[in-house]
């Protein structure tokens, strides 16, 4: 990876590199995000955006109460979000805990969903508080069960106490396990990093260590994917591309529940990172409830009428 030439892997070189990054003015970032939220997306662009958003969803269930039945139902929904309308695209991936990966993979394959990847959250998700050994094993397990996307969490404790090298090494170790078998999404948990300066630093740290995607949140902490956070991460991938000629993906997750929210995300992608990022290879949305709202808005565009929630499937 050419990006690694920017540093030699030592904590000192990392620190030195991160210090070269310009600061983020929080008020300015909030204003820019608020201004982009006023974009008015209508008719043909709305239709395009809804289908694009559906195909970008990582349809997620991460509950203690998850069962095989629940996972199978999620997979069916992922493949055919609207059973009545085959023109609706399938979602980007399903995202589950590591012990559910096998069930999800098997069910998807059995219903013709071979092209839908299964993503597993890993590395002692959501807190990341476990030994390195456990985290590596967690990742290996998920991959061996058929996960082709790994959503790891960074060690926020290490980041906040300044042990950037530790965070970096851990991401690299997980990346090594993923190698060419799985895409690596690195969750920054921005709600715990708090400042936008931290978000920018952590984004670069993850990209330098080999992340294929940077992801905002676990969904277990609020605030999650706020517009200013996504804006700063999109600026980071845009600028990182200038440095390395590598395009890293972005995945906001947590709190994106409505079509309006999703379209605002796509506007951010278009106007900050650029149209090159407007595809499921480089932008995903971690969500569950969002899908149904997108489907209802899609029906409204097709039929001209709003239908009740009973016309979309609950899961």
């Amino acid at each position: 990876m050419s990006a690694l030439n920017l540093i030699d892997g030592s904590e000192t070189s990392l620190r030195r590199f991160l210090q070269t990054l310009a600061g983020v003015d929080q008020i300015g970032a909030q204003e820019r995000a608020a201004m982009l939220a006023t974009r008015s997306i209508k008719t043909t662009s709305k239709k395009w955006a809804i289908d694009m958003a559906i195909s970008m969803i990582d349809l997620t269930t991460l509950e203690g109460a998850d069962t095989a039945g629940k996972i199978r139902s999620l997979c069916s929904k992922a493949l055919r979000p609207d059973p009545q309308d085959p023109s609706v695209p399938h979602v980007g991936a399903v995202c589950v805990y590591n012990d559910m990966v096998g069930i999800a993979r098997k069910h998807l394959d059995s219903i013709g969903g071979q092209s839908i990847p299964v993503a597993a959250v890993a590395t002692a998700f959501p807190s990341g508080r476990a030994s390195r050994k456990v985290k590596l094993q967690d990742t290996k397990d998920a991959i061996s069960l058929g996960a082709t996307e790994i959503d790891m969490v960074i060690d926020r404790g290490a980041f906040l106490s300044g042990h950037l090298g530790e965070v970096f090494d851990e991401i690299r170790a997980i990346k090594e396990i993923c190698s060419d078998k799985a895409h690596l999404k690195v969750i920054l948990e921005t709600g715990e990093l708090v400042t936008l300066d931290n978000v920018r630093k952590a984004s670069y740290l993850a990209m330098l260590a080999g992340a294929d995607f940077i992801k905002t949140s676990t969904g277990k902490v609020t605030p999650a994917a706020t517009a200013p956070v996504v804006l700063v991460m999109l600026e980071a991938v845009r600028d990182f591309y200038e440095l390395s000629q590598v395009r890293i993906g972005v995945k906001p997750a947590g709190g994106i529940r409505t079509t309006k929210d999703a379209i605002k995300q796509l506007v951010l992608v278009k106007e900050i990172a650029g149209a090159e990022w407007l595809n499921p290879e480089l932008f995903r949305i971690g969500a569950s409830a969002l899908l149904n709202d997108l489907l209802m808005q899609r029906m409204k565009l097709t039929t001209g009428r709003y239908s009740s929630a009973n016309y979309v499937t609950v899961d």
Partner: peptide
């Protein structure tokens, strides 16, 4: 030189 560059661009 030490400005928050992206926000300065907006400004």
């Amino acid at each position: 030189e030490d400005a928050p560059l992206d926000q300065a661009v907006e400004g």
